[in-house]
Simulated scan of single mutants.
Amino acid sequence: MNVRAIFIDMDGTLLTASNNISKRNLEAIYMLQNQGVKVFLATGRHYEVTAPYHKEIGLQTPMICLNGASIHDAETGKAIQMKTVQVNEERFHQLTAEHAFNVMIHTANGLYCKEINEEIDYWTKVGQIPPRYIGDLRQANYQDVLKYSVRTGAPIPELSTLFKKEAEVINWNDGFELLAPNVSKWSAIKSLLRTLRISPNEVVAIGDGPNDIEMLRHVGTGVAMGNASEEVKKAADFVTGHHENDGLAEFIEGYLQIPYKSYVI
């Protein structure tokens, strides 16, 4: 394959369930870089909990965060692109406050949330920055929203559909997310490819979630993880192994023909 760039999702793709990068995945990425392939992270995470892994790998490429709502400079971390979303706040909070949902609002200035959970505790530990506000979000003073995340505990498309005229909706098994219209990992990738003068045909993208579907469909080679849903797999050109079994490295070694060879880093 003539590959000049690869965009890698983090959770369920690069990382194990314990939020680690396996040695085999790390070595496969190093081999790609040694062959001149540009490696990017494209994640739903915010910058603070993306940057430590970006640093661990030693990447020098911009980070696509919050499903494409922001792109961050590799060296400074400064947002070089941000796409804010606007919904009817009164209506949003009325609909979500009627249920025992946790709501997380990612803004240009940090995270606002209804309540703390295990996920937010992990973000605080890794990113070293706690939420700016915890409590009734109707009383919070925030602006420049990049992503709304509603944790319902189960799919609830009848609620998320109500926001389709205002925002880009991503449905998950445990809730949904809202972005600015037409914002996705793919929209951010397109922006970077124009700057780098790389054709989408020379690009690989690999992921496992509904937020990865657009990029898998539009790059030259889309790769779904073995742990992905059938919907995600149908959007891809290839399906590789499970993220707990180094599916990322499996694809790099097999389809990009870079052999696995353990060596001291």
Results as ranks from 00 to 15, higher is better:
residue 50 T to W: 01
residue 110 G to N: 08
residue 164 K to H: 14
residue 197 R to A: 06
residue 1 M to K: 10
residue 108 A to V: 13
residue 251 F to Q: 04
residue 165 K to P: 01
residue 130 P to H: 02
residue 151 R to W: 11
residue 139 Q to Y: 03
residue 237 D to V: 07
residue 59 L to Q: 07
residue 150 V to C: 02
residue 174 D to Q: 10
residue 71 I to V: 15
residue 23 K to W: 05
residue 38 K to Y: 01
residue 179 L to I: 04
residue 88 N to I: 07
residue 194 R to V: 10
residue 259 P to I: 12
residue 245 N to L: 06
residue 255 Y to I: 11
residue 265 I to K: 11
residue 148 Y to K: 12
residue 173 N to R: 11
residue 45 R to H: 12
residue 106 H to I: 09
residue 129 I to E: 06
residue 126 V to R: 08
residue 198 I to F: 00
residue 170 I to D: 00
residue 15 L to M: 10
residue 171 N to C: 13
residue 160 S to K: 09
residue 44 G to H: 11
residue 246 D to L: 05
residue 191 S to M: 14
residue 143 Q to L: 03
residue 120 I to F: 06
residue 186 W to L: 05
residue 122 Y to Q: 06
residue 126 V to M: 12
residue 98 E to F: 02
residue 216 L to T: 04
residue 243 H to L: 05
residue 183 V to P: 05
residue 245 N to W: 03
residue 55 K to Y: 07
residue 76 T to P: 03
residue 32 L to W: 06
residue 11 D to F: 06
residue 33 Q to S: 09
residue 154 A to K: 15
residue 117 N to R: 08
residue 142 Y to L: 08
residue 201 N to S: 11
residue 117 N to M: 08
residue 109 N to S: 14
residue 131 P to R: 07
residue 206 I to Q: 04
residue 32 L to M: 13
residue 200 P to H: 01
residue 257 Q to W: 05
residue 68 G to M: 10
residue 248 L to W: 03
residue 77 G to F: 08
residue 218 H to V: 03
residue 143 Q to N: 14
residue 210 P to F: 12
residue 83 K to T: 12
residue 196 L to F: 01
residue 172 W to G: 02
residue 97 A to R: 11
residue 82 M to S: 15
residue 218 H to C: 03
residue 232 V to I: 14
residue 228 A to H: 07
residue 204 V to T: 08
residue 236 A to N: 00
residue 95 L to K: 00
residue 176 F to E: 01
residue 128 Q to P: 02
residue 42 A to H: 09
residue 52 P to Y: 09
residue 218 H to I: 02
residue 126 V to S: 04
residue 263 Y to F: 14
residue 37 V to Y: 01
residue 238 F to L: 10
residue 257 Q to C: 10
residue 182 N to G: 01
residue 263 Y to V: 13
residue 173 N to P: 05
residue 241 G to M: 15
residue 104 M to S: 15
